[in-house]
Structure formats: structure tokens, C-alpha cells
Design a protein around this nucleic acid. Sequence first.
DNA 1: CGGTTTTGACCAGCGC
DNA 2: GCGCTGGTCAAAACCG
Length: 194
Amino acid sequence: MENYQMMMFNTQPSPTPPYYNYDHYPQNLLPFSTTTTYDNNNNNTTTNNIGSLHEFLLSSNSNDEKIISSQGGGLIKRRPEEGEEEEQGGMVKKMKKKVRREKYAFQTRSQVDILDDGYRWRKYGQKSVKNNKFPRSYYRCTHQGCSVKKQIQRLSKDEGVVVTTYEGIHTHPIQKSNDNFEHILSQMQIYSGC
DNA sequence: CGGTTTTGACCAGCGC
DNA sequence: GCGCTGGTCAAAACCG
């Protein structure tokens, strides 16, 4: 499993890049075995054995935004769900009305920025970001009625790392026919030389 | 020709 | 109030 995990996060440019859509993984085979939790100051707080992303999402009940770095380079950032905001003076009403959805970020070591997750995306913006020489790209899912967004940004301090942030949940099946677990496995075997 | 990308403008939130 | 920053819009350009 450890080899698979590394393959999932270390992609190479290819006509048929590895697929790693977590929503469609068998939940017990997600590439998360060990996670390290950091607080807002990036201090290491805990290290846990977590069998899968699914388990992590179920077990995570803190209202704080978290950054989770998994063995192999995965990273998850969780934000409070709608209605979880702390009340802060005059901001309460606005915060309550504002729809905030779950946001998860995956940190991937890759030479390519666009990592194929099986869904079709349309780019709607690009911005330069403070303290980062690489721009951040904004994408929306092209499926009708699906409002999932993602952001892609390469780290300035580690140019080999791409951070993909997903916001929202897809309301439809995956849009590419060859995105199944057998395909993922065969891709990993090709790259790992098995 | 339809879908996607590019890119400058615009807007909202936040700190000072 | 003002400036900075992040996020979105939308028209034009691009591409298969």
C-alpha cells in the first residue's frame, strides 16, 4: 500500500496521467495511512493512523480549520460547515447568511499543474497570490447544475508541489469512462514497474 | 461553431 | 475611509 500511496502523489507528465479521484475510491483503499495534524501556526500537534479519507472526514469534528499532511504528501484542509461559524459581534448575521461549504485541499508532488481527477472543469479565473510567484487558477465543474469549484496553485517555496483545493460536492457521476479503480491500479503498476 | 482559456475589471472582506 | 487581497465576471481570443 505504501508504494501505491507514493505513486498517487508523485505524478509524472503523461498522455494518460494517473487518476486519483477520492470520491470513487473503495473507501478502505484510500491512500491515507498516517496523518499529521497541524495547528494554525503549522506546529505539529498529533499524528494518527487513519485508514482512509472517509474515516478522517467522519472522525473530524473540530470547528477549526485544519491542515492534514498525510504520509506521501497528501494534505487536507477542512473549514467549518455552514452554521458552524463562531458569533463575532456585528458579523454574525452576514456570516450566518453566507453559504460556506466544505473545502478540502490536496497537496501533490507533480510536475504538471492540471491533475486529472476524472471530472471536467472550466477555468474562470487566474490571480497572482501574495508571497507566491505562481498564479492561482480557479476552475468550476462544467456539469449542468453542479457548482463544485477547485483552485490550483503551485507552492513558491517548493516548486514541485501543487495544491488543489476542492469546494463542494459533485451532484453527478464521474464524467470519464476510464476512471475506475482497475484503471487506477494499472496506472500505478505501470509507474511503479510492477 | 461551440466550448474553453485568457485577462483586465469589478466587488467584497478585512486590517490599519 | 483607504488600500490590499482574494474571488468572480465577462468579453475577446483561442482551439479542435
